[in-house]
Design a protein around this nucleic acid. Sequence first.
DNA 1: GCCTAACCGAGACGGTACGTCCGGTCTTTTT
DNA 2: AAAAAGACCGGACGTACCGTCTCGGTTAGGC
Lengths: 201, 201, 201, 201
Amino acid sequence: MSTSTGGRPRDASRDEAILDATLDLLAQVGYDDLTTAEVARRAGAGKATIYRRWPSKADLVVAAVGRMGGDEPTLDHLPDTGTLRGDLAALFRPQTPEEDARSLGVMRGLTSLLSQSSELAEAASAAIIGPFVDSQRLLMERAVTRGEVPADVDVATVARVTPSMTAFRLAVERRPIDVDELMHLVDVVVLPALRVAPPGP
Amino acid sequence: MSTSTGGRPRDASRDEAILDATLDLLAQVGYDDLTTAEVARRAGAGKATIYRRWPSKADLVVAAVGRMGGDEPTLDHLPDTGTLRGDLAALFRPQTPEEDARSLGVMRGLTSLLSQSSELAEAASAAIIGPFVDSQRLLMERAVTRGEVPADVDVATVARVTPSMTAFRLAVERRPIDVDELMHLVDVVVLPALRVAPPGP
Amino acid sequence: MSTSTGGRPRDASRDEAILDATLDLLAQVGYDDLTTAEVARRAGAGKATIYRRWPSKADLVVAAVGRMGGDEPTLDHLPDTGTLRGDLAALFRPQTPEEDARSLGVMRGLTSLLSQSSELAEAASAAIIGPFVDSQRLLMERAVTRGEVPADVDVATVARVTPSMTAFRLAVERRPIDVDELMHLVDVVVLPALRVAPPGP
Amino acid sequence: MSTSTGGRPRDASRDEAILDATLDLLAQVGYDDLTTAEVARRAGAGKATIYRRWPSKADLVVAAVGRMGGDEPTLDHLPDTGTLRGDLAALFRPQTPEEDARSLGVMRGLTSLLSQSSELAEAASAAIIGPFVDSQRLLMERAVTRGEVPADVDVATVARVTPSMTAFRLAVERRPIDVDELMHLVDVVVLPALRVAPPGP
DNA sequence: GCCTAACCGAGACGGTACGTCCGGTCTTTTT
DNA sequence: AAAAAGACCGGACGTACCGTCTCGGTTAGGC
């Protein structure tokens, strides 16, 4: 009934080692200069082991990036400062430096991968941008509950504004975006769109 | 003034043929699968002729894409409907279908070019996104002059919202964006950020 | 006496199946295109079962070929026609056609095995050529006993002439050699070297 | 009328460099351990340049070996000592040591190549063994002219005896053969087959 | 009659060479 | 001197195969 019984089972630890090596290398040299041979070397794996699992370099990188996504964000793990602006500022504050550096590097390295196919691109962007959008949406919905934001605002759309512009800046214009710029965007675009009065000067 | 004295002058018609072939191929197969050899074949040119004019494949594609951009936009060539919302709606209306199809294909094909270097990426995005941003900024500044928008709004920042999200959708998520979605964005984000009351339902 | 105490004993029938599969495959595709995986598949065996018995592909093939050799030749099993020439002619007459076809295929397939190492090459050639040389030497020594050949001739050297040329033709030039050619060699080289008068025309 | 006019012509000097590197490497490491990448490195060539000329590693090596053949041997370039035995002894004396070492190394390295196809094997053996056979045949025919050898002997067949056994020893048994052994073969097999009395002890 | 150790088929694993492809340069002949 | 044509170097890709290792399961013997 089962597809196959015998044979040595796949070693799940190889997946991990290979995807980790892929992410590290991607962040360091970018997609084009990432070679499967070097991934194999760093993972202590053979090229065949990689190609047995993923049919191409592009699929490998997508899988590696997809694993980055982490858990679904929940309000319990998000900042709670009392005001939406404060919450967003806390969200934008960089995490541990090394974690942040890798995210940025991966994002930068990812760019040229996106040209390969719609599916891959969608998967990749969902894994990276998705949680960022979701976090903002949760914070904004809580602000609605709190009465800080009117209930008739299309929160889902507004929650996409800063993630999109961040991704665009990083992936397309390739200039990093800092917290001050993000907060400027919040004050000039996001809060007005949500009918929240920005703070006085 | 010129350094060269004799010899056969460059044939300017080759530029056109080469750049046209580059754009067509880019829209068809994307940046990675675009080969200089195929560009040369389609243009009836030699590879050396290409590399004499542009130092690399990336520069060639940037030049081809840059040529698409057209002229610096001015108010004279932009719609004037009396309201900012009407102006933007007219701006978003697609051009001739074939022109539009090529734009989309090129945009999609462009993605992986952006990974090559910051300079090229900036040049490319400027050539494509720049005129779109400038057009919106001009329309918004006219709305300020008209008194439709308060003078203290950061128009330059707001003018980047829809172009960024369009580019992000196209280049990263690879889903085309239609006029209705753009107008929804205008109503939900852009106009509120500009303190313009959106139209009633 | 034996070192091991318990455990399941080796299944001797696996040797046979594996070596048979090896010979068949060798004759069909040659040494280079023979893969241990395919041998295992045909023998219904696992690769580990093969490598538990022979340390390498080369050893496997040598063992398979060595098994072909059959028993040490003795005068009892060799033809006795009364003259050396008649004895050699009988020796050269092909065996059953299918047996002969496999011998030829194996011989052809063996060639590149010989490049692996001196030891293996020597073992392989001994297993194949050895009995052929020994048979001729026995026949020639009997001819000496019979007084047909002078006692001072270096029979051991002369016995190597046709086997060497046969092997050379087959393995190096890769043209099969037929009985007529062999007998021509006997008449022109072997018998004169043994001071035996060749037959009249 | 011609197949093609334009384009950069093949650089004949690359053939030479590649084939030389191939021969050197073949003599040093043998056919199996010869890699096209290393040939390219030593020749200062790209792999594509090699594969543009020869469709596979086997063809490359055959071409390299074929070039070794050198010129058709003539009596003018062969030793003349007055007796056939002396001529053969002079022929067997090694050439310049380095030339000889390479010949031997190539011969050894060639073995496993011969399994690839009949054509290649024939070409290779002809290039290497052919001149050796021809030289002996010429010397033997001169001995016939001189009256040293009867005219009714099949010289062409006898001329193949020592080359075949040399090649067999080298390629199959992989033991080098020295001049003393060759002369023993001459005394025991070749001269008797030619009805020439061997020298007294 | 059960325990144990070595066997068995299946196939994943690390490593390494093959032959293909492409970017950017160089070399011909022709214009 | 610029053009078309295409050969050139370098190096990554994805495939194949060797010899090893790891599964689950079977098959003798020793207790």
